[in-house]
C-alpha cells in the first residue's frame, strides 16, 4: 500500500464577521469563533502505481486532504501513512520521495528560465548530475518542450508552464505524485497533452498518482478509480463507470426540427428539459430510446437528431445532492 488514510479529520477555526462598520468595531472586542469541518473521518487506501481521482465540488475538502497527505497541514485527528511515513512529521526521507503540484501556484521562478528552477530542485533534492540529465531528457521528450527550457518562465503560456511545473516536480523521481487541479485554466488541447503525459509517465514508472480535478475528462480518461468527496466525507469510492451505470438509465434526445413544434406534443415522449420552438432536449429512460426516437422521426419534421448520455458531472452532482 502506498497510501493508507484512516479516520482523517481537519477542523479550521475562523471568526464570524458581519458586514458594516459597527460590526467591525464590535469584532474588536468580541469575536464569535466558528468551526469548519473541512475533512470528516476520511478513510481510504491506495496501491502503488494506481492513479486515483479525487472528485468533488469546491470546498469539499480535496485540497485539504492533499495538504495533509503532503505534510503541509496537521490533521485534527486520525492517521495517515504515505510510503510508510507519517506526512506531517516532515521527514527529509519522505520529502524526497513525493511531489505535489498545486495547479494554481507556481514553483518556477518567473524571471528565470525554467531550466534554472530545475537546477535548483536538483540541488534541493540532492540529485546527482547523471540522474538529473537522464530524467530531464526523458521528461523533456515526453512533454516535447526542448525549445522552451531556456525561455523565461513568465513568458510561457499557461499550458507550457504547467508542463514545466510537472518536470520541476518529477526531477527527483518521486514515488508518489499529488496533483491538485493540474489542468485548471488550460485549453482543451493542452489539457489532453497533460493527461497523456500523466498516463504515460504512470505506465512507464509505476508512480502512484492522486489527482483532483474539476474536469470530468481528466478523471474519466486517467483514473480507473475515483473517490468522490463532498462536505469532507467520502461519498463514493470505486470505478467511476459504476456511477455512470447507475445514472445511465436516463438518456438525452437532442432534436432539431425544421419548423416550430408545440412543446405540449413533445411532453408525451418524456421530460422536456430544453425547448425553444425548433430545438428540444428530451430526457427519457434508456429502454424507451428506440421507440421514442422512431415516433419522433415519424411524427415530426426532424432535421437533426442525437442521443446523448447524461454528462457525468451532472450525474455526480446528483450523487452529491443525494448524499448531502
Amino acid at each position: 500500500m502506498a497510501i493508507i488514510v484512516k479516520d482523517l479529520n481537519k477542523q479550521y477555526h475562523y471568526y464570524k464577521k458581519q458586514a458594516g462598520l459597527a460590526q467591525s468595531v464590535k469584532n474588536l472586542f468580541h469575536r464569535e469563533k466558528l468551526v469548519k469541518e473541512a475533512v470528516r473521518n476520511i478513510s481510504f487506501s491506495i496501491d502503488e502505481g494506481e492513479i486515483v481521482g479525487f472528485l468533488g465540488p469546491n470546498g469539499a475538502g480535496k485540497t485539504t486532504t492533499l495538504k495533509m497527505l503532503s505534510g503541509i497541514l496537521f490533521p485534527t485527528g486520525g492517521s495517515a501513512s504515505v510510503l510508510g511515513f507519517t506526512p506531517w512529521e516532515r521527514k527529509k526521507e519522505f520529502k524526497k520521495r513525493f511531489a505535489i503540484v498545486l495547479g494554481q501556484k507556481s514553483q518556477l521562478w518567473p524571471d528565470l528560465p525554467a531550466y534554472e528552477s530545475f537546477q535548483l530542485n536538483k540541488a534541493i533534492y540532492e540529485v546527482d548530475d547523471r540522474t538529473f540529465s537522464a530524467t530531464l531528457d526523458e521528461l523533456v521528450e515526453l512533454l516535447d518542450v526542448k525549445e522552451l527550457l531556456h525561455v523565461q518562465a513568465r513568458r510561457l503560456s499557461l499550458g507550457e508552464r504547467m508542463k514545466m511545473e510537472l518536470i520541476a516536480s518529477l526531477i527527483h523521481r518521486p514515488r508518489i505524485l499529488f496533483l491538485d487541479e493540474p489542468t485548471i485554466g488550460l485549453d482543451v488541447i493542452s489539457q489532453k497533452k497533460i493527461r497523456e503525459f500523466i498516463r504515460k509517465y504512470n505506465e512507464r514508472f509505476k508512480i502512484t498518482v492522486l489527482l483532483t480535478s474539476h474536469y470530468m475528462k481528466d478523471i474519466e480518461e486517467l483514473c480507473r478509480r475515483t473517490i468522490v468527496i463532498n462536505e469532507g466525507q467520502v461519498m463514493f469510492d470505486g470505478d467511476l463507470n459504476r456511477i455512470k451505470t447507475s445514472f445511465a438509465d436516463i438518456k438525452r434526445l437532442k432534436v432539431q426540427f425544421a419548423e416550430e413544434v408545440d412543446v405540449e406534443r413533445l411532453r408525451s415522449f418524456g421530460k422536456v428539459t430544453e425547448w425553444d420552438g425548433v430545438h428540444a432536449t428530451i430526457e427519457t429512460n434508456h429502454q424507451d430510446v428506440p421507440a421514442v426516437s422512431q415516433q419522433l422521426l415519424n411524427r415530426f419534421p426532424v432535421l437533426d437528431f442525437a442521443v446523448e448520455e447524461q454528462p457525468i458531472d451532472e450525474a455526480v452532482a446528483k450523487l452529491f445532492a443525494k448524499g448531502g
Binding site: K67, S70, G71, I72, R90, K92, K95, K96, F98, A99, I100, L102, K105, Q107, N121, I124, Y125, E126
Partner: peptide, 13 residues
C-alpha cells in the same frame, strides 16, 4: 499570505 510557503514545507530545504 498566498500559501506559497507550502512549497517549501514539502521540499527538503
Amino acid at each position: 499570505k498566498s500559501g506559497g510557503l507550502s512549497k517549501f514545507i514539502v521540499q527538503p530545504i
